[in-house]
Design a protein around this nucleic acid. Structure first.
Lengths: 362, 362
DNA sequence: CGCACAAGCTAATACGCTTTAGCACGCTGC
DNA sequence: GCAGCGTGCTAAAGCGTATTAGCTTGTGCG
């Protein structure tokens, strides 16, 4: 063992009077498998490891095709967010928790990619290869990269459902469809027939799932679901009191918002203008981050199980690494817990009544 | 090249009709150094790389070269805190930022150590060795571990000043001494002569630094600094209105709290009881976390430069790794920016006046 | 012509580990 | 006495890359 450098298996082998193969077998717990090592020898090896302070070289281990116990975490956004109310935080909490339980260390990919935006491929090199597998988090992902990654057979799991070329990639996903269906079902059960679904996100998988749940709830109740029930818009400010007035006049009795923030703004807008919620208008939000600092107590919605999604991603990745040939159907879906509020109620008796109220309010 | 696996330098070499050495040299831009490769050959190699879609194998590269670009991050507390207002968060933000700039990936040590509490040494083995060097964060550190770590010559940096056997270890530290001296100086400039320093923490380096700054400010102004000016207590609730009353009666005109939370509680306690701050009592806090969600607008204090401390730790570690023989004096000190408030003012005319006010208030 | 020297390349080795074929040995059963 | 077998171990072959000592060839120069 050269001065100043770490001991290798070779050094351990020499100290314990065995071959490096024995050392490797003992370290990897394969001493009682096909090849057997006497317990006396095992103990000598372990003692030598302790004496010399041996730690395996990760790169060598990986090169030789062994276990490194390192999972990569790649986020398209900065990992440690400046804003403590960051949406991604709970995912990472879940990832760390489960990594600890499953005995993995986490390798965070923070190296710059020159372009400002983060990329998996850096200088032509797949950064993730430094880890055995990786969990990917973020909204701003690069589909081409994901596609390439999958083609290469690199083991990874996305947090959130993602499709590449119409096919689901390994992922853990919130059951937006089911949760939306249940929530909208509650509106229908309360008597609503004309429900407007307001989508602010660009077309992505989460929005698609919610839309599907929305439509399912309608069809399950035998309500025809014309496209005019889905309102897509770019930004929150585009909804005004004027919009609300028009919708109510059209006979709309309930609004389903994709984002809880917008739901909350509109709730305040409506109540500030004298509209009663529920009564004149019922409001639901299709999901709420598990953020302990913010409480939208009153809006009917459901929790997005972020920690579970993060933890589930690690569990799934672990399984993929252990059983590379297992056929698993993606995504792994995790249910959302309902958050009861006070914004669902029976609709106003008729469209005309709604109209009156709004005119009074203005 | 086997099916299903990525092309290697060997494949490129064969395709371009050269040896693997040439491929390696071209890839690493060393084709014009000691060993020269004709530009025609270089172009052939590059073309083959493009044709076959070659991507270097990181593990092999690391094994052969030694450079891993991986820094360890060891925290005694969980890394992704559940509480978004966690004190450690900003340190990690800084670490990540600087790691990105300095072109390092971060290896988070999350593997359990069996004992519940996290430890660097696991089964007698230094876990950190998996990385080139490590940044350590946390209050609950194990001094023996740090001592051993240093003796082994492992490159590491602590975030926050730490002494082992009376000697400073590599660390980045907030300039508590200077900031405290300046802040207490402002009290003195306002006319205060009897200032009570209230310490809640157990005896550690940060508390010691503040105490030193406090005493320096006093001696610089020629004020004798008897020990009775330092009040140590375990928990916040132990300070009551009764205490305040006694202190004012003793002629104390200003309080310096180690923790801003306590300062804030006492401020509310005092004002709730009719005491005027400042006026009857001036209050300062010796440091405030860089937490954007909490605003103690009104208390005079200073920011603890947490992000800079984290970033500085990475910078320092980088330097230690690059110049192992450089002699650097520790800790690297980072100044604290003052946060002006409204709780410093001139003292009450006399001790007796203070007494009166308190008696009215009670 | 003979030598020195540069250019352009190859062969070989090392990095630290995992894995597997196979060896030596002692025991059992016939 | 020997085949057959299990136990405990070793030797050796990679994994994909970087590095370097040398080899060959061509060129300039005295």
């Amino acid at each position: 063992m050269k001065r100043g450098s770490r001991p290798t298996q070779h050094d351990i082998a020499r100290a314990a009077g065995v071959s490096t193969a024995v050392v490797s077998l003992v370290i990897n717990g394969r001493a009682n498998g096909k090849v057997k090592i006497s317990s006396a020898t095992q103990e000598r090896v372990r003692q030598a490891i302790r004496d010399l302070g041996y730690v395996p070289n990760l790169a060598a281990r990986q090169l030789a095709g062994g276990q490194t116990n390192v999972l990569g975490v790649f986020t398209y956004e900065p990992i440690f967010p400046m804003s403590p109310t960051d949406f991604y935080q709970p995912f990472l909490v879940g990832i760390e928790e489960q990594a600890t339980k499953s005995d993995y260390n986490l390798l965070l990919f923070t190296r710059p990619t020159g372009t400002g935006r983060r990329h998996i491929y850096y200088d032509g090199v797949n950064q993730l290869l430094a880890a055995q597998g990786a969990v990917l988090v973020g909204t701003n992902e690069d589909r081409d990269e994901l596609s390439r990654l999958r083609d290469e057979g690199y083991p990874f799991v996305f947090v959130g459902r993602r499709e590449i070329n119409g096919e689901n990639i390994p992922a853990t996903a919130a059951d937006y469809t089911g949760a939306t269906e249940a929530l909208v079902g509650r509106l229908i059960a309360a008597g609503h027939r004309q429900i407007l679904y307001i989508s602010f996100q660009s077309e992505n998988e989460s929005a698609a799932d919610r839309t599907r749940g929305f439509l399912r709830a309608l069809t399950a109740a035998g309500i025809p679901a014309p496209e005019c029930f889905v309102h897509r818009t770019e930004k929150a400010p585009t909804i005004t009191l004027e919009h609300l007035r028009q919708w109510i006049a059209q006979g709309i009795t309930a609004l389903a918002f994709e984002q809880i923030n917008t739901a909350y703004e509109i709730l305040e807008l409506a109540e500030g203008a004298g509209l009663r919620v529920p009564g004149d208008l019922s409001i639901v939000a299709l999901g709420k981050a598990d953020d302990p600092t913010v409480h939208h107590h009153d809006i009917d919605t459901f929790f997005i199980p972020q920690r579970e999604m993060g933890a589930g991603a690690v569990t799934l990745l672990d399984r993929i690494l252990r059983e590379p040939d297992a056929s698993i159907s993606y995504p792994i879906t995790i249910p959302c817990t309902p958050v009861p509020g006070r914004t669902i109620g029976p609709p106003a008796p008729s469209g005309a009544a709604g109209k009156e109220v709004v005119e009074q309010a203005l």
